[in-house]
Design a protein around this nucleic acid. Structure first.
Length: 494
RNA sequence: ACGGUUGUGGUGAAGUGGUAUCAUGCAACCCUCCCAAGGUUGCGUCCCGGGUUCAAAUCCCGGCAGCCGUACCA
């Protein structure tokens, strides 16, 4: 029997977090729309990310750039070569393989770089057949992981939707370096869309064709990779790592920053592994055991990466899943752009007079995957309470508080509740609800993760105090209206 | 991409050629002094396009989408 859509996907749609795009036309695989709650959650996540990774650093800034970029950008980055693969498909059973791999494997000819026509000719010449069913192949076609875009009149495309946000900071580096007064390290962040024509998008937002990345590109002097001013104070910090050598035992090992440096990772790199773990464990309150830093081996890591760890969170339905990565891309990208654009990407170290191309450390996050992971993590079907409780932290949950008059039909209560609501919504994300019994309203609030419920009851009319209900414990405390703002201020920093 | 499988209100389901049902939800009103009470009224559905038939949610073909497996995921 085919499985039902997962509980989580149903919940996303039912409450307004996320649903298929173009839904009234039957949907479009790999594309999703965020509803009102999902959009709030996503924005909140992005803002926490900005604050933590960008705004807390000197000389780090966010830029916003075009999603459609010049063909040459991807010539330089290697995407045109590596993202567009020649494919042969079996005419009978549908098996397919990369055409150049097939030709190289079976004929020992160097097939890399051959055109589709040349590959088709080689396949015909050597009478290559499908390894599965021995039928003949169709003509070699091109599988393009990038979406080409036609610009203006005519149908020759000279541009693509970017498959990663990273290239924008690289092509803008020289200008931003000048504008940011020639200082390294220099950070350029983008929170924006990227597009990949995935063969098989699946698992809601875990693999989409249009998705949001939050990426920080840090340009550094490669000679200084083995130092960081804050490293010494953090050298005993324990990181949850799964290195290549841990894989046979399937072990996540806590290692200190110093141990990782001893193993050969640069201090500057390890410092950012620490930052990333702090972001999840301290900032987003992700339980440590659900988090790990997973080292990729030589085969798995992208060709441009010297060091590559995936950031992974354990999901209920999919196990440990990549939600980001820390990539030491060296000078691969700037060098590529220097060659293709013929513009120098070199800068001069004022002290030593040395000229060099900066290296890039990329801190990369899939925003949609993070949002999914956080919802997955905080989704609890509370049997005792009889409703779902979405225990998102106050700083990212869509609504911080809701205000409720205890009952609807007492105009004095509703008026007071509305007054409090109107005042507090100036400072926080607030929700107001007076429909149905108070218990039902608490339940509805739990389900969309409203952190606190403020209830105006009959006593409030006399003592000018209200109750604050904690979503996670359901405990209530009574607070004078005059102290409410201050109290919420404290609670918002939990 | 291939193979298997599924598609009925917002959500979950019943209906297998002949009047589309139920629960939940949502909305309005009544009631209600703290954790999905109750009452009244209302809203809303057969994925899309062809075909067969007197008649299609139901049968057939195609498409789209979901799920599972394989493949893919620089």
């Amino acid at each position: 029997m085919a499985e039902k859509t997962s509980d989580l996907a149903t919940f996303f749609k039912k409450k307004g977090f996320l649903y298929p795009s173009s839904d009234i036309y039957g949907g479009l695989a790999g594309f999703y729309d965020y509803g009102h709650l999902g959009t709030m959650l996503k924005r909140n996540f992005e803002n926490v990310w900005r604050k933590f990774f960008v705004e807390s650093q000197d000389n780090y800034y966010e830029i916003e750039t075009a999603n459609i970029m010049h063909e040459n950008v991807f010539k330089a980055s290697g995407h045109l070569e590596n993202f567009i693969d020649p494919i042969v498909k079996c005419s009978k059973c549908g098996f397919f393989e990369r055409a150049d791999h097939l030709v190289e494997k079976t004929t020992k000819i160097r097939a890399e770089g051959l055109s589709s026509e040349e590959l088709t000719r080689e396949i015909e010449k050597h009478h290559l057949k499908c390894p599965k069913c021995s039928s003949s192949f169709e003509k070699v076609s091109v599988m393009n992981m990038m979406f080409p875009v036609n610009i203006g009149v005519g149908n020759q495309h000279k541009a693509y939707l970017r498959p990663e946000t990273a290239q924008s900071p690289y092509v803008n580096f020289k200008l931003q370096y000048e504008l940011q007064r020639k200082k390294l390290p220099l950070g350029l962040a983008i929170v924006g869309r990227a597009y990949r024509n995935e063969i098989s998008p699946r698992h809601v937002t875990l693999r989409m064709r249009e998705f949001t990345q939050a990426e920080l590109q840090i340009f550094v002097n490669p000679d200084l990779m083995n130092e960081h001013p804050e490293f010494d104070s953090l050298q005993d910090y324990e990181l949850r790592t799964m290195l290549v050598e841990d894989r046979p035992q399937k072990m996540i090992v806590e290692r200190t920053a110093a141990e990782l440096v001893e193993r050969g990772l640069p201090k500057y790199y390890v410092y950012h592994l620490i930052k990333i773990q702090q972001f999840y464990v301290d900032e987003l309150r992700v339980p440590k055991h659900k988090f790990r830093l997973y080292e990729l081996n030589e085969k798995e890591k992208a060709f441009y990466n010297k060091y590559h760890f995936d950031i992974e969170m354990e999901l209920s339905e999919h196990g440990f899943t990549e939600i980001g990565g820390l990539h030491y891309r060296t000078d691969h990208d700037l060098k590529g752009h220097q060659e293709v654009s013929t513009q120098s990407m070199e800068i001069v170290d004022e002290e030593t007079g040395k000229k060099f191309i900066p290296h890039v450390l990329e801190v990369s996050f899939g925003v949609d995957r993070n949002v999914y992971a956080l919802l997955d993590l905080h989704y609890n079907d509370d049997q005792e309470r009889g409703n779902i409780v979405l225990s998102l932290p106050a700083k990212i949950t869509p609504f911080f508080c809701a205000v409720f008059p205890l009952v609807k039909n007492k105009p004095e209560l509703a008026a007071k509740a509305r007054g409090i609501y109107q005042e507090l919504r100036k400072d926080w994300r607030f929700f107001y609800d007076e429909v149905a019994s108070i218990g039902r309203r608490y339940a509805r609030a739990d389900e969309i993760g409203i952190r606190y419920g403020i209830t105006v009851d009959f006593e409030s009319l006399d003592d000018n105090a209200v109750t604050i209900r904690d979503r996670d414990t359901t405990k209530q405390q009574r607070v004078p209206v005059s102290e409410l703002k201050q109290k919420l201020q404290e609670l918002s920093h939990e």
